[in-house]
Amino acid sequence: MIEINPLVIFFASIFTNNMIMSNFLGMCSFIAVSSEIKTSLSLGQAVTFVLATTSVLNYLVYYLILVPLGLEYMRFIVFIIVIAAFVQLVEMIIERYFETLYYSLGIFLPLITVNCAILGVSLFMIIREYDLIQSFMFGLGSGIGWTLAIVAMAGIRKKITGAKIPKGLEGAGITLIITGIMALAFLGFSGIVQIQ
């Protein structure tokens, strides 16, 4: 186990080790859904929830099943299946029992089944040898960081609607360029806390 205060991991994963801005993970839904603040906030919440829970689930599966059996190298397929099954289950549950939540958050769940940020968190926590609490904080923080990035992006895109953008750069093109500039800005956080 690695000796880092879970809170440090939490803040680092929001700012300095932001999933989108420093690892470029979860870009597809980041670009596709960042056109409106409200929807990106809902998607961000869904991602945060799934990240926090699957990091714990995958931690347990990995250390209780895969490690004792010497099957660490199978973690990719197992993590993917666990994430997909979990998302599917959660979708069914909220669709049935939490109607209002379903309309704000549930419809985004299928979209994040294969969000690479989610698999990324599960893999990073294994590589960095976090313990259970650290993994949970890492998952939660990464989710909040991802939400922060997508909401900020949605805000910027709202500002530039109507701006004169060269035809070839409209939509995804300009979004990618803004992402690059935002990533530079996030680099400014790098002195605050530091994890691997």
């Binding site: 599966v61 099943i65 199978m74 666990v82």
Partner: peptide, 11 residues
Amino acid sequence: VTTVLTISGIT
């Protein structure tokens, strides 16, 4: 065999 069984089991 264990690998296949474990992964099949989880799935």
